[in-house]
């Protein structure tokens, strides 16, 4: 697993005497700052505008005021959001769907990777190759046949104390969760990580009478914190940002995730202040998580490129 470590602080060439920065270095730093403005201005604009009435958002566009929290600021847009969409429901749905998917994803993929990297059995190589092969098909190529397919799948439901079989997964929670649990990329990441853990630990545990599941749970998983964090982050982001899939398979308002909520604002006459407020509400939690766990985020992204 590659980690992108921050560059060490520069050692002063002549301690006690400050070197004058060369024009080249000033130019590079200016470029870095200009790019920082380029990458942050829409986000700053979104956050600031979410507190302004519509008229002021457009009035402030012609100057630096567009990026400053000045003028008439209020939480009106936020209260407006709750009148227009069931925002709490959407947020709870997304939190629940993402959390369950992340948890199942960590468990099921690491379990498979454990068997594929640390146990001896026939057919292991074939299974590993087949799993990796699923990576070459982008989701978009089979999303539509999959809608047709999930509409045919059976599910068990409790109906007045009796277990009944229903057909079709459209409009359910499971259709938003189960298709995204198993992931060849995550199996591969766990597989690579598990191989760095010494196998002698397993052998010692076997002599002590531990079961294979016991080794997985008590020895390997507790040593795999970084891999778990990587998979948690890589599994969480697409679930929180899910749009195409829920757009196609979820009709009832009660089951919708946050990103579909945006369509409510586009369809009816838009209040840009409310759109900015809703966008901020569903973005800020992720940005906060990112800033808090920045190092883990960056190294998880970097490790997704290792397979080359």
């Amino acid at each position: 697993m590659t980690s992108v470590s921050p560059a060490p602080a520069p050692a002063p060439a002549h301690p006690g005497r400050r070197r004058r920065p060369s024009p080249r270095r000033i130019g590079l730093q200016a470029a870095r700052i200009a790019l920082a403005l380029f990458f942050s201005f829409p986000i700053v604009f979104m956050l600031v505008s979410s507190f302004k009435p519509d008229q002021q958002i457009f009035g402030d566009l012609d100057g630096i005021k567009a990026f400053l929290p000045v003028g008439h600021l209020s939480l009106d847009n936020y209260t407006g959001v709750f009148d227009r969409v069931p925002a709490v429901r959407f947020l709870l749905n997304s939190i629940g769907i993402s959390a369950i998917t992340v948890a199942l994803s960590i468990f099921i993929n690491s379990l498979a990777a454990f068997a594929l990297s640390r146990m001896r059995w026939r057919g292991k190589k074939i299974v590993l190759t087949a799993v990796i092969a699923t990576l070459i098909v982008p989701f978009e190529t089979f999303a539509l046949p999959m809608v047709w397919w999930v509409n045919k799948l059976p599910w068990l439901q409790l109906d007045g104390g009796r277990l009944i079989v229903t057909e079709g997964w459209l409009d359910t929670y499971q259709v938003q969760i189960l298709p995204f649990v198993a992931n060849a990329m995550f199996i591969f990441l766990f597989h690579q990580y598990f191989q760095s853990i010494p196998k002698e630990l397993d052998e010692a545990a076997v002599l002590d009478g531990a079961s294979w599941f016991g080794i997985y749970r008590r020895i390997v998983m507790p040593l795999s914190g970084p891999a778990i964090a990587t998979v948690a982050i890589l599994a969480f982001l697409p679930m929180w940002n899910a749009y195409l899939w829920p757009l196609m398979v979820v009709q009832s308002e009660d089951l919708r995730p946050v990103m579909i909520g945006i369509d409510y604002f586009v369809q009816t006459n838009p209040s840009w202040g409310e759109i900015m407020a809703y966008s901020s509400m569903i973005t800020v939690p992720v940005l906060a998580l990112f800033v808090a766990f920045q190092r883990a985020f960056v190294s998880s992204i970097a490790s997704s490129g290792v397979k080359g």
Binding site: I108, L111, A112, M119, V131, A182, I187, W212, F213
Partner: peptide, 8 residues
């Protein structure tokens, strides 16, 4: 251990 992932 592999079958849940393979099944999905």
């Amino acid at each position: 251990m592999v079958s849940p992932a393979v099944f999905l």
